[in-house]
Every structure is written in structure tokens, then in C-alpha cells.
Design a protein around this nucleic acid. Structure first.
Length: 654
RNA sequence: GCUGGCGUAGCUCAACUGGUAGAGCACCUGAUUUGUAAUCAGGCGGUCGCGGGUUCGAGUCCCACCGCCAGCUCCA
């Protein structure tokens, strides 16, 4: 065993120190006391380690300080431990479970009969921040399975015992414990040197969460919080959260008068004229895109006999989400699903399959691409409804592609490109997820193997980076989901590409091949917006209500400087623009110009067109462009010139 | 569906420990005739989510239901 180890630093320099020197000592003596003071943890040969770790072999070392973005994650994890420790002190008998850091902070799940009240949270937060002031060191210790079981057994931590068993079942040799003060938890680490390095802890909310994410398990209380290095950083974050709330589509939907909800129809949207305008614009754009890409648009019934759902598999796997229509003749003593005779459709696929079946299909027709924007109903649990992003009645820009197996790759590629093109037109950034067979599924494993293999191969060909989501597929097939985040960072699935070998079997779909025999088509389910409702919700937040001209429900508002004198000309301008297809309105409020301009700005209308004596004389308008600050006033323009500009901006970008 | 929170005028929010519901904006009317983010005055507007209960008295306390919000499970 060599007495010295050679450590390489990020700048390439090498230092040699006696084996067994801790990283903390190494940093202080070999790099500098300044760095040692701010260091939180280190990366040793790409492994994240505590500063207390002794250096026992040659390696590459880099030190992580608060400047590193990853450092926040560490102190939030530290914070979770601190919170758990004070919760157990303040509320004896509470059991701990898990407490990871998240994108915006951390949470910790507790088991306790009594719920934590908002006052409890305040007390916990106060105590947690006092714990920071005590600057207790985090101490790591490795223990064996027996020691771990004995420790958490003695503490009565039944949830922890369950995790310990799992960890060792998965082949771990030892378990690392981290303690601060007299509180101990097991944890992979690393942790910071001491509690004092966590600047400030802020608790945000309590929510229910199921043990191991399964609703059949006991429900735990999850305390959400966040931590920052300084109060200033925390304040900045809180301010940013407030700003994000201003973009919330539910807020803007009211402010801009786009849609309403009513308790009489929970989860179903009342679209105002303005909201409907947005809906229609997007619908028209998608229709055009589909038609120019080899799709045909069809319309199909909204309500179907139960037997269809039995054929499709929805009856077995999706019934709890379906709105059933009960047979009035049926025996009321029977359970509801047995009295059901019809159901509103929750998906378009069975309709399309029936349509495919309605005549003999030739291989020459494939790929047959059917597009539909029909209304769908899904009986979603009350607790999941959320503005436009999760509703019970919605319309998808849905399509089903009936293809030969040999066409799968090509179609998935073309689809991915189409999706990218549409999202890029809105400047939306998305993440792709590849989801495989779920627990609740139809079809045998051989078909699923085939479907997952084919879809994955096609996905890899697109070159898109993707995340794997095992078990997250639709009940009939694997899928690629395209997620976009809302203003609060919550991700929503918009577009989707789903590969389905089951449908053709269940519906006995076939086409006549070149060999004059019957073959099974493969079905690709796909949506680009996902649903109009969710997509519009996301767009509202994405643009903060400042819609580009082509989607804006009102593209221009004419503002007469003096109502009595300029109203006639204002009407002339509006008429001419309207005749050319511009969505225009006139401010008839007789207000002062400053107030009228302000109203137009608050309504986020792209162009406010001021018309006064100058404009009347020049037969022009003075447009003010929304959201452009000092350069807002475009000055006097000939009406035709403005019309040309706005018409160009109103073009569908895809 | 589960856990917690919330529900007062179209919107945003007040109403101390239970004691006759109030403001701003919006809307309507009048005056003002105005050049790029709020002209002035007056007026209209509420079964305090719904239903029970406690109380001399309930927006306020209790119960049930409905809806909304955050999260969980589920999903476009």
C-alpha cells in the first residue's frame, strides 16, 4: 500500500498527499483555506462524495461550492434531513419515510395519524431554521444490515425497515447512515459538512402522498419545502413564483375573457367568443396541416353501444373513466356498469377502426391516415381536474394511421418531424418520453415485444433525445409522449405517438396485400397538440397571454382620438381591415386616449390603431404594437401598408 | 378517489374575539372633446357556494354536500 496518493485537479495539476487525508484537509492544505470554507462536497472520479471522505487512491477531484448549480440540490437534501429531525422532535411518534430533493426544493413523507396544520408547518420551519444556526456537522457512518435493522427497529421506524430490507435485497453490502445532532437517517449521500451551510429553509405545503406511490398503501403526509443559500435568493425565488402565477392560464383566462367554468359542468369549458377564436384558429391550422400531409378528415358518432367498448378493450381497462348511459329498462338492482347500454366515447380509436372496416382495404391505400377533432368525454377523478390542462370534455387533434409493418419507421419519423415543426412554430420546448407496457394491458407479450421494439427503433432513428418510462404506455400499446412544461414548471403531455398491434386483432382489421391475401395493418395513434384544451392552456402560459398576431382573438383595436370627430373614420378603417380578414374592433368608450391605450395594452391586443385628424387626412393609421416598450408607437402608416403587415403576421406558420 | 387548504358583487379583496355586509376596478348615466398605460361626478350591483344545526343573534362556530386550489394515484 503506497503511502501517497496522487490527486488530479480540474486544471490538470496534480498534488500528492498521504493516503488517508480527508478531502476537507486536502482542499485546505493543497488548494486553499478559502475554498475549504465554501466547499460543500466533492466529485471524486465522477462519484459524489462527502468532504470527510479520506483519499485512499489516485484520482481526479473537483470541489463543489455554492456557485455550482448542483449545490442547491445538495442543501435541499440536507434541508429534508433537518426538517425530518425537527418533525420527530416536535411530534413524537411520527415515522419518517423518504425525503428527496426536487427541481424546486424538497419534500419529506411522514406517517402520523394527526394531520400537520399550517401552524405546525410554521413551527417546523422555525425549528428547522434554528437547527441551521446550531451548525451541527453531518456525520457519515457505514453499518451492516443487522446493525441497520437493529437501529431502525429500536426506533420503531417500520417504513425505514422496509426500505433497509429492499436495499440489501438489491445486493448492497453496507448501508450509510448520516446523522446531525442526535438524529440519524440512512442515505446515499453526499451531504454538506454541516447544517449551517443550508442558508434558509422555507416550508411550502402539506399534501397527501401514498407510501411507495401506490394508492392501496397507507397515505403519508408530504411536507414540501425549499432551501436557498440566502434569504435574498429565497425572496427572489418567491417573487419569481408570484410572477409565474400571473401567467397561470386560469388567471389569464379570466383577465382576457377567454373561457369560463361552471360548477354545473365540472371539467368542461365554456369558451367565450375570444377563446373560441383561438380554438378555431388552431383547429383550422391543424386541419390544413393534416390535409397537406396525406391525412383525410372524418367525423364519427360520439356515443356507442357497450359492445364496441368490449371489442376495443375499453370496457375491461378503461370503464372507470367512461361516462355510461344507463338502460332505463334495466333492473335498478344491478350495478351501474351492468345497466349501461351506451357510453360517450373517451377516445376516437374504436370509431376509426370501425370506419376502416367499412369497406375492403387495399395495400395501395396504406398508410391510411384518418384525422378527427371530435369531442371526447372522460370521467376523470374530481381531484385531478385542473383548469384547461385536465378536463372531462375535450377535443384531440387525433389521428390513426393504418400502416403496413414496413411503413412504421417512415411514419414515426415523419410524425416526429411534424410534431417538431408545430412546436417550433410556437417556440415550445418539449421532452420526449418512451413509455412501455403498463400493468393494465390487452394483448400478449409477443405483440408487445414487437410493438415496443418497432417503436423504439423508429424513435432512435429520429435522433431525438428521450427519457424511458417503463410501464407508462397506453393499455393497447407503447407510446412516445411529448411533454411541455407550464408556467409553474409542471409537465403536461401534449403530443403522443402510440403503436398498436392489438387493435387490428381485436377489430379483425385487414387489407389485401400485393399477394392478394389478407394482412393485418398496424395502427399508429397520434396527436400533435394533444388536446385543444390543454394545448391552449399551455399556449396562454407560454405567451403570458401575449398571443402572436395569427392566434390573437383580437388582432387590432381602432382608437378614435376624439369620438365625435373620428368615429366615422375609425369605422371605415375597421370595415376595411375586417373585409380583409383581420380580427378588429373599435374602442367606443369615448374615453381619453391614454385610458384607451391602456385598455388595449391590458387586453394584450397586438395592435392599437390610433386615428385622429392626421390619420383621417392621410388615410392612414398610427399603430402601437403591444409589448414593445418605448418603440411601441410605429408612427403614421398608410392603411394599406398596415394591412399588408398584419396580414403577413396573421399567416399560419405551419 | 385520497390528504390538506379555500369559497363574500362580473373581477381583486375588506368586515376585531358571533352583533344590521364594504372598497377599488368593471358596468350604467351625466359632464368633459381629449394624440399613446387610468378625466370627474352620480348610479346599479350580494339568497355571504348550497342545505342543516348551535345561538336572543351566524359571513364568522359545528355537520353534510357541491365547487375550486396544491399535492398523491390516474391521464391528452
Amino acid at each position: 500500500m503506497s503511502a501517497q496518493v496522487s490527486i488530479t485537479l480540474p486544471d490538470g495539476s496534480q498534488k500528492s498527499v498521504p493516503a488517508g487525508t480527508t478531502i476537507a484537509d486536502f482542499v485546505r492544505t493543497q488548494i486553499g483555506p478559502g475554498l475549504a470554507k465554501v466547499a460543500l462536497y466533492a466529485k471524486l472520479d465522477d462519484a459524489e462524495v462527502d468532504l470527510s471522505k479520506p483519499l485512499d487512491h489516485d484520482g481526479k477531484l473537483s470541489v463543489v461550492t455554492p456557485k455550482d448549480p448542483a449545490a442547491l440540490e445538495l442543501i435541499r437534501h440536507d434541508a429534508a434531513h433537518i426538517v425530518a429531525s425537527v418533525v420527530q422532535r416536535l411530534f413524537p411518534g411520527t415515522q419518517v419515510t423518504i425525503g428527496p430533493s426536487t427541481d424546486e426544493g424538497f419534500y419529506y413523507d411522514f406517517h402520523r395519524e394527526k394531520p400537520f396544520t399550517p401552524e405546525d408547518l410554521e413551527a417546523i420551519e422555525k425549528a428547522a431554521n434554528e437547527e441551521i444556526k446550531k451548525d451541527l456537522p453531518f456525520v457519515r457512518k457505514e453499518v451492516s444490515k443487522d446493525e441497520a435493522l437493529a437501529l431502525f427497529g429500536k426506533l420503531g421506524e417500520t417504513f425505514k425497515l422496509e426500505i433497509v430490507e429492499d436495499i440489501f435485497k438489491r445486493g448492497a453490502k453496507t448501508l450509510s447512515l448520516y446523522s446531525h445532532g442526535d438524529w440519524v437517517d440512512f442515505c446515499l449521500g453526499p451531504h454538506g459538512p454541516s447544517t449551517g451551510r443550508v442558508g434558509v429553509i422555507k416550508l411550502l405545503s402539506v399534501a397527501g402522498a401514498y407510501w411507495r406511490g401506490d394508492h392501496r398503501n397507507p397515505q403519508l403526509q408530504r411536507i414540501y419545502g425549499t432551501a436557498f443559500f440566502s434569504q435574498k435568493d429565497l425572496d427572489a425565488w418567491l417573487h419569481q413564483q408570484e410572477e409565474a402565477k400571473k401567467r397561470d392560464h386560469r388567471r389569464l383566462g379570466k383577465d382576457l375573457d377567454l373561457f369560463h367554468f361552471h360548477p354545473a359542468a365540472p371539467g368542461a369549458v365554456f369558451w367565450t367568443a375570444k377563446g373560441t377564436s383561438i380554438f378555431t384558429t388552431l383547429s383550422t391550422a391543424m386541419r390544413r396541416l393534416c390535409l397537406s400531409n396525406g391525412y383525410e378528415e372524418i367525423k364519427t358518432p360520439l356515443i356507442y353501444n357497450k359492445s364496441l367498448w368490449e371489442t376495443s378493450g375499453h370496457w375491461g381497462k378503461y370503464r372507470e373513466n367512461m361516462f355510461l348511459i344507463l338502460d332505463p329498462e334495466a333492473d335498478p338492482a344491478l350495478p351501474e356498469d351492468e345497466r349501461a347500454s351506451f357510453s360517450l366515447k373517451p377516445m376516437n380509436c374504436p370509431s376509426h377502426h370501425l370506419y376502416f372496416q367499412m369497406k375492403r382495404r387495399s395495400y395501395r391505400e396504406l398508410p391510411l391516415r384518418l384525422h378527427t377533432q371530435d369531442v371526447l368525454h372522460r370521467n376523470e377523478a374530481t381531484g385531478v381536474l385542473s383548469g384547461l390542462t385536465r378536463v372531462r370534455q375535450f377535443q384531440q387533434d387525433d389521428a390513426h394511421l393504418y400502416v403496413m409493418e414496413s411503413q412504421i419507421t417512415e411514419e414515426v419519423l415523419a410524425l416526429s418531424q411534424l410534431i417538431s415543426k408545430v412546436y417550433e412554430a410556437f417556440n415550445l420546448t418539449f421532452t420526449a418520453k418512451f413509455a412501455t407496457r403498463p400493468e393494465k394491458k390487452i394483448g400478449d407479450d409477443a405483440l408487445w415485444d414487437k410493438a415496443e421494439g418497432a417503436l423504439k427503433a423508429a424513435l432512435e432513428k429520429t435522433g431525438l433525445p428521450y427519457e424511458l418510462k417503463p410501464g407508462d404506455g397506453a393499455f393497447y400499446g407503447p407510446k412516445i409522449d411529448f411533454d411541455v412544461a407550464d408556467s409553474l414548471g409542471r409537465k403536461w403531455q401534449l403530443g403522443t405517438i402510440q403503436l398498436d398491434y392489438n387493435a387490428a386483432e381485436r377489430f379483425d382489421l385487414n387489407y389485401i396485400g400485393a399477394d392478394n391475401t389478407e394482412h393485418r395493418p398496424v395502427v399508429i395513434h397520434r396527436a400533435i397538440y394533444g388536446s385543444f384544451e390543454r394545448f391552449i392552456g399551455i399556449l396562454i402560459e407560454h405567451f403570458a397571454g401575449n398571443f402572436p398576431v395569427w392566434i390573437a382573438p383580437v388582432q387590432a383595436r381602432v382608437i378614435p382620438v376624439v369620438a365625435e370627430r373620428h368615429s366615422a373614420y375609425a369605422k371605415e378603417v375597421a370595415d376595411k381591415l375586417r373585409a380583409a380578414g383581420v380580427r378588429v374592433e373599435i374602442d367606443t368608450s369615448h374615453g381619453r386616449i391614454g385610458a384607451m391605450i391602456r385598455d388595449a395594452q391590458l387586453a394584450k391586443i397586438p395592435y392599437a390603431l390610433v386615428v385622429g385628424d392626421k390619420e383621417v387626412e392621410a388615410r392612414g393609421v398610427s399603430p402601437r404594437k403591444h409589448g414593445t416598450g418605448k418603440d411601441a408607437d410605429l408612427g403614421l402608416l398608410p392603411l394599406d401598408q398596415f394591412l399588408a403587415t398584419v396580414t403577413k403576421e396573421a399567416e399560419i406558420p405551419y
